[in-house]
Amino acid sequence: SGFLKSTIARKFAMALSGLFLVIFLAQHFFINFTSVFSAETFNELSHFMGTNPVVQYVAQPILIFGVIFHFVMGFVLEIKNRNARNISYAKFSGGANSTWMSRNMIWSGLVVLAFLALHFYDFWIPEMVHKYVESHPEDATRYYAETVEKFHDPIRTWAYVISFVFLAMHLLHGFQSSFQSIGFNNIYSRGLKAFTVAFAILIPLGFIFIALYHHLNQ
């Protein structure tokens, strides 16, 4: 739309999609974390998520759209930004005035994208196939085993772990940045920043823990 032509509006949309993904991530973390201590809870929750029509037909499409929108818009902005400086500096001291994370969102984002591809291949596609292509009898307890099984392979586990490190970097800048993008910068920003940093480190760390836990537990 015409509205999404302006850089500010695009960035605003980028921030909203990012924040939405952050919320998904939190939710996703808590469900997956249950797999560490209780196969039953995990199965229950997964079953609920996997069969609830609101989740399946409303939330999931939104999420998929969100992911796609987010990375496509990320590329669009990145291209615009690269074009904005057609001759580059012979010497550019970006490190003197900004963080590495903030300058390399596209790279951390790309790693996350690659991860998502793998992750979809691992979980989502089999899941979809299982549910909608082949028809199996309903089994509310299959999730745990299927999930844990994936972490058998050390290479995949490492790929996950490394991706999560990049995810952390993406979020270290992205989470706080999204508030600035939607115009939230005031006396509360300091506290909020601390929260976003904590989130950006702890949640991926938690994911790493889950992955390693299942890998080592086999």
Binding site: T7, K11, L77, A84, G94, S102, H173
Partner: peptide, 14 residues
């Protein structure tokens, strides 16, 4: 500003 071809802000703070 957009027409002039400036980039988009990604909040690096530089």
């Amino acid at each position: 500003m957009d027409e002039e071809g400036f980039g988009n802000c990604s909040n690096t703070g530089a």
